[in-house]
């Protein structure tokens, strides 16, 4: 499998404290990699290591299949912590200044400013922007030079709900056009709507899981509350041998996905079992992550 960002045993220490320990990142082209973790878990440090903003103590970083990371970074745009902007210049002037690092035409700069929603700021200096506007400008700067990867650290910080939706739509639109993303966020709900793979950071260690596997981990179970648990279990074993279930007293939890709830209900009732409750229950994403982050 070709990864465009791949790290092996990446480690960073600050004095005696290990900020990132043996992190192995696998980011494929087209992924939206959601990096999740508590404050101080090491998310930003991991991103900084990939971007070369801090020096690693151990491990390897490969960008676009090459260990020449600086060459790979020319194709990466990023927004890490506070947006880096020239406060005494307008949004356009900021973009123009940074376009020396990532060649972009004036027309493209205007298009990017419109895309991130600050195309109408005119002569207003960036220092007078609200936090949300500065974030948008930072995003615009990250988009200069048509990067293939965007690394965004808490990109929806300071944005109102409408702004959050706008940024989400921008990310999905750009992803559809082939840009790969690595995004960190505390807002699980937002990441859950867009991420295709998750990196869960806890105390400097990284665990990865794809969206598909996460869905399977959080799969729902069919909960059936009956008057006679033994009889109900016997009926299910004899009439539905392929269905997997657990019995907890008078509660039957059917774990096979896609089990026909109506058929199960009919069979139980026909066998004289009273069914008091029949519903789908599952683990929410949030519960899954809280469980993992708490480890």
């Amino acid at each position: 499998m070709d990864y465009i960002i791949e790290t092996r045993a990446l480690t960073k220490k600050y004095g005696g404290k290990i900020a990132v320990k043996d992190a192995c990142v696998h980011l494929r082209k087209g992924d939206i990699y959601g990096l999740i973790g508590k404050n101080g878990a090491g998310k930003t440090t991991l991103m900084k290591l990939i971007l070369g903003l801090v020096n690693k103590n151990a491990g390897e970083i490969k960008l676009f299949g090459s260990e020449n990371a600086d060459a790979g970074r020319r194709k990466i745009g990023s927004l890490i912590e506070a947006p880096a902007i020239y406060k005494n210049e307008t949004a356009f002037e900021n973009m123009k200044r940074f376009s020396y690092l990532a060649p972009t035409t004036d027309d493209e700069i205007k298009r990017l400013l419109d895309l991130v929603g600050i195309g109408d700021t005119g002569s207003k200096k960036a220092g007078a922007f609200s936090l949300g506007m500065k974030q948008r400008l930072g995003l615009g700067i990250a988009l200069l030079g048509s990067p293939e990867i965007l690394v965004l650290d808490e990109p929806i910080n300071g944005l109102d709900p409408a702004g959050i939706k706008e940024v989400r739509d921008i990310i999905l639109d750009l992803n559809a056009k082939g840009i790969t993303f690595m995004i960190s966020s505390h807002i699980l709900d937002e990441l859950g709507k867009i991420a295709t793979v998750y990196g869960i950071m806890s105390n400097g260690t990284l665990e990865e899981i794809t969206a598909e596997d996460l869905k399977a981990e959080c799969r729902s179970a069919l909960k059936i509350v009956v008057d006679d648990g033994e009889k109900a279990a016997s009926v299910l074993r004899s009439e539905f041998p392929s269905v997997e279930f657990e019995k907890y007293g008078e509660v039957i939890s059917v774990t096979t996905q896609g089990a026909d709830a109506a058929a199960l209900n009919r069979a139980l009732v026909a066998a004289g079992v009273s069914v008091y409750e029949l519903k789908n229950e599952g683990m929410e994403f949030e519960d899954y992550f809280i469980e993992r982050l708490g480890k």
């Binding site: 971007l51 020319r74 990023s78 890490i80 020239y86 690092l101």
Partner: peptide, 9 residues
């Protein structure tokens, strides 16, 4: 500003 410079390789 140095973040933008170093992160661009």
């Amino acid at each position: 500003i140095v973040k933008n410079i170093f992160s661009r390789g």
